[in-house]
Amino acid sequence: MAYSEKVIEHYNNPRNVGSFGTSKDVAARRDIGVGIVGAPECGDVMQLQIKVNAEGVIEDAKFKCFGCGSAIASSSLATEWIKGRTVDEALGVKNTQIVEELSLPPVKIHCSVLAEDSIRSAIEDYRKKNAGATTTHVSHSN
């Protein structure tokens, strides 16, 4: 199967690879939301970490991905798109936009779905950590 040039480019030069600490470290930090979606037995696991500032803006995002080239490209692209956006804006990223940007074929659509899920999951984690908080990390939705 031929990959699109954009997929190959992200594969070779993935953006924002990494994490803000070990799984234990980030679990304790309220400014960080972590989303881990997929499963090893399905051949895809995406981990997205977002660092949110007091204004509810995602000031940094890091990803790691176990998956095919399209999964790696989808999660790399997702980090580019959500950085600098508010959490509400980030929730507007749709898998169809990722499919279009990376020219993913039908068999790879699940990779884009997983990337969208990882954004939702990271934001959910961030909101859960800050539920009831009144000062710095207030969720801007609702």
């Binding site: 070990t22 997929g38 499963a39 090893p40 991905c65 699940h110």
Partner: peptide, 24 residues
């Protein structure tokens, strides 16, 4: 492996087969 979240877990000493993954 630099990209792999599973490799990080392995390095942290976590057995990935023991994690409740959400199969899709």
């Amino acid at each position: 492996r630099r990209l792999s979240p599973l490799f990080d877990l392995h390095k942290e000493g976590i057995d990935i087969s023991k994690i409740q993954w959400q199969a899709h």
